[in-house]
Simulated assay, not measured.
Amino acid sequence: ATDDRGAAVAAMGEAFARFMAGRDDAAGIIGIGGGGGTSIATAGMRVLPVGVPKLMVSTLASGDTSAYVDVSDIAMMPSVTDIAGLNRLSRAVLANAAYAIVGMSRVPPIEAEGKPAIGLTMFGVTTPCVTAVAAALREDYDCLVFHATGTGGRAMEKLADSGLFAGLIDVTTTEICDLLFGGVLSAGPDRLGAAARTRLPYVGSAGALDMVNFRAPETVPERYRDRTFYRHNPQVTLMRTTPGENRAMGEWIGERLNRCDGPVRFLIPELGVSALDAPGQAFYDPQADAALFDALERTFARSAERQLIRLPFHINDPQFSAALVENFREIAA
């Protein structure tokens, strides 16, 4: 026994998660709480499948909820007042929450399409490529496109581990930049891990490996102040990766892909890895790109199942998206 409230809350969250993981009869789930209650309830919600209605009424719902939602589909509703008895405001909020969870739970689950699902990764600067790939495959596959913002990569990895996908087309591996160099959109150190664990057909590329993401300019660490930046919008500042950083990324990616026993095709766009990495654009740097590609060449262990393919195209060229589709169809057949 312990009098440590924090330890008790953590233990209760773990116990509730184990309890909910063993249930297959949940039509929906609703939670009400402050800091401790939100932590406990959402721990159980996160283990339920995507699509099961999940609603958390919380005093923390209008702040940073990433620790509670993570890569699940929990809906967070602000309680407005504290969870301390009923009043005219809490009655209205809780009534709306009750109506919401009942309404969501009454609706029959949407049937999945009969086509197999595949996961794809995209950033704004790789949108033309990924859009073309999805359009070419949509007749045969249910194409689930994930925004490579950290959460997107983690969600794709989690769903791959769950058995949802028939394959992955990981065009935009940019989250690795943020993992290695302190950006704000890292998907964590397990990026590319699901491909190795599941042996799914995997087609990848170097999409947006020319940039590390930060918030507003004043949030950029002091050690990077003399670097090349691009202001994506007032809240997002992009930093161009250097040849040294690109070598480190090439080695990191090569080592991770070498752990894959399933079919792997990694395609290199020699003329640029993003819309900003093109002649006349802010991040055009053939020397930095060459460092990335050469490191991949040195590190990647080719085999009958694993192939590294260099192509004389920009990542957003139609020929490159066509090559991604061709290689995926070949290994997924």
Results as ranks from 00 to 15, higher is better:
residue 180 L to N: 06
residue 94 L to H: 12
residue 200 L to S: 00
residue 67 A to P: 05
residue 85 G to H: 03
residue 168 L to D: 03
residue 15 A to S: 07
residue 105 S to E: 03
residue 12 M to A: 13
residue 277 D to Y: 11
residue 324 L to S: 03
residue 250 G to I: 06
residue 201 P to Q: 09
residue 161 D to K: 11
residue 276 L to F: 15
residue 285 D to T: 00
residue 75 A to I: 14
residue 290 A to Y: 09
residue 332 A to N: 13
residue 115 K to I: 10
residue 157 E to P: 06
residue 326 E to F: 09
residue 301 A to V: 04
residue 281 Q to L: 12
residue 300 F to D: 01
residue 165 F to M: 07
residue 74 I to Q: 05
residue 33 G to H: 05
residue 231 R to E: 15
residue 128 P to S: 11
residue 90 S to M: 01
residue 163 G to R: 07
residue 18 R to L: 15
residue 29 I to H: 07
residue 237 T to N: 08
residue 255 E to L: 01
residue 64 D to E: 03
residue 256 R to P: 05
residue 281 Q to N: 12
residue 51 G to T: 08
residue 134 A to R: 15
residue 172 T to G: 10
residue 42 T to R: 05
residue 271 L to F: 11
residue 307 Q to Y: 00
residue 115 K to N: 09
residue 262 G to P: 01
residue 110 I to F: 10
residue 316 N to G: 02
residue 223 R to Y: 10
residue 227 R to T: 10
residue 68 Y to W: 14
residue 93 V to K: 02
residue 171 V to Q: 11
residue 260 C to T: 04
residue 232 H to E: 01
residue 164 L to G: 02
residue 115 K to F: 12
residue 298 R to T: 13
residue 230 Y to L: 12
residue 224 Y to A: 04
residue 224 Y to P: 01
residue 212 V to L: 08
residue 58 S to Y: 04
residue 324 L to R: 06
residue 8 A to S: 15
residue 17 A to V: 13
residue 285 D to A: 03
residue 292 L to Q: 02
residue 312 P to A: 09
residue 22 G to L: 11
residue 32 I to H: 05
residue 5 R to Y: 15
residue 224 Y to F: 15
residue 314 H to L: 07
residue 226 D to I: 04
residue 308 L to Q: 08
residue 317 D to S: 14
residue 247 R to Q: 11
residue 81 T to H: 11
residue 127 T to R: 09
residue 225 R to F: 00
residue 173 T to A: 15
residue 117 A to R: 07
residue 79 S to D: 00
residue 64 D to R: 05
residue 83 I to N: 03
residue 97 A to S: 05
residue 87 N to D: 14
residue 293 F to E: 13
residue 247 R to T: 10
residue 48 L to T: 07
residue 149 T to R: 01
residue 316 N to D: 01
residue 27 A to N: 14
residue 73 D to K: 07
residue 135 A to W: 06
residue 14 E to T: 04
residue 307 Q to A: 10
residue 88 R to L: 11
residue 161 D to N: 14
residue 90 S to K: 00
residue 329 R to C: 07
residue 204 G to S: 08
residue 312 P to I: 05
residue 216 A to K: 10
residue 83 I to F: 03
residue 145 V to L: 08
residue 56 M to N: 02
residue 120 L to Y: 03
residue 329 R to Y: 09
residue 170 D to R: 09
residue 43 A to F: 00
residue 53 P to W: 08
residue 330 E to A: 13
residue 85 G to M: 06
residue 310 R to W: 12
residue 167 G to V: 01
residue 42 T to H: 11
residue 314 H to N: 11
residue 259 R to Q: 08
residue 38 T to I: 07
residue 227 R to C: 12
residue 168 L to A: 04
residue 303 S to F: 03
residue 198 T to I: 05
residue 117 A to F: 04
residue 265 R to Q: 04
residue 151 T to K: 12
residue 225 R to G: 07
residue 238 L to M: 05
residue 321 S to T: 03
